[in-house]
Nucleic acid binder design. Structure first.
Length: 612
RNA sequence: CGGGGAGUAGCGCAGCUUGGUUAGCGCGCAUGCUUUGGGAGCAUGAGGCCGCGGGUUCGAAUCCCGCCUCCCCGACCA
């Protein structure tokens, strides 16, 4: 007698109200049968796939591309996606988050009120209804959440509150790529905290940060937490969770000496100690014809017989930029001094100047300021002409530099900081290199790559100001609410897991997110498939999620290869050993094999699934 | 938006330089027989707007012009 493969009438089937910490599809009592599953695996990589997650998710029949940056999730993919979302939901519940679902289609007025209708620019999808009224497809939902809370809550006693949703988000990315990793439509968990004061916001932020740590730990991801600069969302404290993978789009730095990790934008260069000025030679200007670049200057100085050797690091490169504060028309010219062996990192510069706009000087700017001699700019031309001059942290008192003498074809050597010039301030925007000293320990920095999978963010009052979200305090006076926002790219997490957990044969799912706990394979010319279905049904009855390969006329090699590609953590093979009453259990991650007796096999497999 | 590549069957590709029968190969799919522990064999078969539009020519997947789309590398983001 073969057990009912669906387990539908089996009283042992767990009830659908699953306990926390279980994958979403545990106990749903739907046996996944390969013979009928809507699944087609591909033998070859899709031509447009570049990164492992894209190749494997496509080949494994988890997703299919529909349009650039737009994908469909097929049955197995949907299960994985839901399992990831399920872990996230559980941890959100644990910190008191309440799930809601807001529309993705949002009318223009909300984003006008916050200023993001224009701020977001081209990266948001805009649509119009038949009457011409404008909408956008939500890229994130600070506006609607703020408005939602404003409509319901009005007393300090109502706060704090944490609301979140798991929803498709839309961004018209300039360049979608890497399959699921960076789509134009993607699944995101976005959470928002509302607090009565800064102290509350800090607490809510910590709650989310801790929840994220638990989520990503449970999801089996290797990740780092780096401090991030606030982007278009405006605000202060902010950290990013980056899943470490060579294919990641975000560069960050790590230290050889500790767990220190930071965004390139956030790296702080340690300043060397100041040195005594006494005894240093006088600054001397030299005629240095045709030396507009650092390289030509260094070569010239070394051939000039000055009695010492210069390197690019002994020169001071002065880069001129102009910045414009938001809402202003006027540009301010600012000089930035960095050691000549380094360039100004535009990303770091933009982050440092935020929210001001930054641009390099154009020819007409030089024409408008004749004292700026292109290629020969020194600190003093700027300082004398009341332009701000900001210097790299390495430019400390007592350091001496070869730099521009503010007239064509002339440089000055031994220009001493603190004696011959005093910068208006410090700016840390030079490029960061492998081997630079770590700011927090004895080690040196090196760059690594990661995928941003989560972001926690103390937003502050940008949106509550825009929508005038107040609560009446105990003193009867209105108090402006302060917000945090916390995102996780749910679909991106799926891809990040694959990036971190695969081999040359296919995906290796962590059990929490796997589409099934056990892949039962029936192969052979006898009644292996029948037995496989029976074993699968019995496992299912124990609440174990099973994928069973009950396809007939499919050779064993195909089934094994598919199983490895699909990546279910444990396989049970009902094959040639069946005549001797023996099944084989394989571990996808380690490749270990174990023979077990058919008698008691279900219990043994169940024990393995539960962690021995 | 700047730079590079590609559009031919569901998927992966050849054919194009040098125009010429019915556009081909592998995988997949269908039917039958055989096969069943590592992507099976044989046989038969279905499946094409050769990206779109125009042009040259007796004749265009192939040559010319225009357009569209997609992918990859750089500036933005979960």
């Amino acid at each position: 007698m073969t057990a009912l493969p669906t387990g539908e009438d089996d009283p042992a089937t767990p009830c659908p109200f699953r306990p926390a910490t279980e994958p979403a599809n545990r106990g749903v009592a739907v046996l996944l049968r390969m013979s009928t599953l809507f699944l087609r695996t591909l033998r070859e990589d899709p031509a447009d796939a570049e990164v492992p997650s894209h190749k494997l998710l496509a080949r494994g029949g988890y997703v299919r591309r529909v349009a650039p940056g737009v994908h469909s999730w097929l049955p197995l993919g949907k299960l994985v996606l839901e399992n990831v979302a399920s872990v996230i939901r559980e941890e959100m519940s644990r910190i008191g988050g309440q799930e809601v679902l807001l529309p993705a289609l949002v009318s223009r007025e909300y984003y006008e009120a916050s200023g993001r209708w224009t701020e977001y620019g081209d990266s948001v999808f805009r649509v119009a209804d038949r009457k011409g009224a404008e909408y956008l497809l939500g890229p994130t939902h600070e506006e609607l959440f703020t408005q939602l809370v404003k409509g319901e809550y009005s007393s300090y006693k109502d706060f704090p509150v944490i609301l979140y949703q798991v929803q498709e988000k839309f961004r018209d990315e300039a360049r979608p790529r890497a399959g699921i990793l960076r789509g134009r439509e993607f699944h995101m968990k976005d959470a928002y905290s509302f607090d009565i004061d800064d102290e509350g916001l800090r607490r809510s932020y910590e709650l989310h940060r801790d929840a994220y740590v638990r989520m990503f730990d449970r999801l089996g991801l290797r990740y780092v937490i780096v401090s991030a600069m606030s982007g278009a969302m405006g605000g202060s404290a902010s950290e990013e969770f980056l899943a470490e993978t060579p294919t990641g789009e975000d560069t960050f730095v790590r230290s050889t000496g500790s767990d220190y990790a930071a965004n390139v934008e956030a790296v702080r260069t340690p300043a060397p100690p100041a040195r005594p000025i006494e005894g240093l030679p006088e600054a001397q200007a030299h005629h240095t014809p045709e030396t507009p670049t650092i390289e030509t200057l260094v070569d010239f100085l070394n051939d000039a017989g000055l009695g010492r050797t210069f390197t690019a690091a002994d020169t001071l490169k002065n880069v001129l930029v102009k910045i414009r504060q938001p809402g202003e028309d006027e540009w301010e010219i600012v000089g930035i001094g960095v050691p000549g062996d380094r360039d100004v990192d535009m990303k770091r510069l933009e982050a440092a100047m935020e929210p001001a706009e930054v641009a390099l000087l154009e020819d007409e700017d030089f024409e408008a300021h004749p004292f700026l001699v292109k290629g020969y700019v020194g600190p003093n031309a700027l300082l004398r002409n009341k332009l701000r001059y900001l210097a790299d942290p390495r430019v400390v008192e007592g350091t001496r530099w070869a730099t521009g003498a503010d007239q064509a074809d002339h440089h000055v050597v031994d220009l001493v900081c603190g004696r011959d010039f005093v910068p208006d301030g410090v700016i840390d925007v030079a490029d960061v290199r492998d081997g630079d000293p770590s700011p927090e320990d004895e080690g040196t920095l090196y760059t690594a790559r990661g995928i941003e999978i989560g972001h926690v963010f103390q937003l502050g009052r940008k949106y509550t100001d825009a929508f005038e979200l107040d609560a009446l305090g105990p003193d009867g006076k209105p108090k402006r609410i302060t917000m945090g926002s916390y995102g996780i790219g749910v679909s991106r997490v799926v891809a990040a897991i694959v990036e971190q957990s695969h081999d040359d044969k296919g995906i290796v799912w962590p059990r929490v997110v796997a589409p099934a706990d056990v892949h039962v394979i029936g192969t052979g010319k006898g009644d292996q498939v029948e037995v496989a279905l029976r074993v699968a049904g019995e496992l299912e009855a124990l609440g174990i999620r099973v994928l069973v390969d009950d396809r007939r006329n499919v050779s064993p090699g195909v089934k094994f290869t598919d199983a490895e590609l699909l990546g279910v953590p444990t396989s049970v093979i009902v094959g040639k050993g069946l005549d001797q009453g023996v099944l084989e259990v394989r571990d996808r991650a380690s490749g270990e094999r174990e023979e077990i007796a058919l008698d008691g096999a279900v219990e043994r497999v169940a024990a393995i699934v539960r962690g021995d």
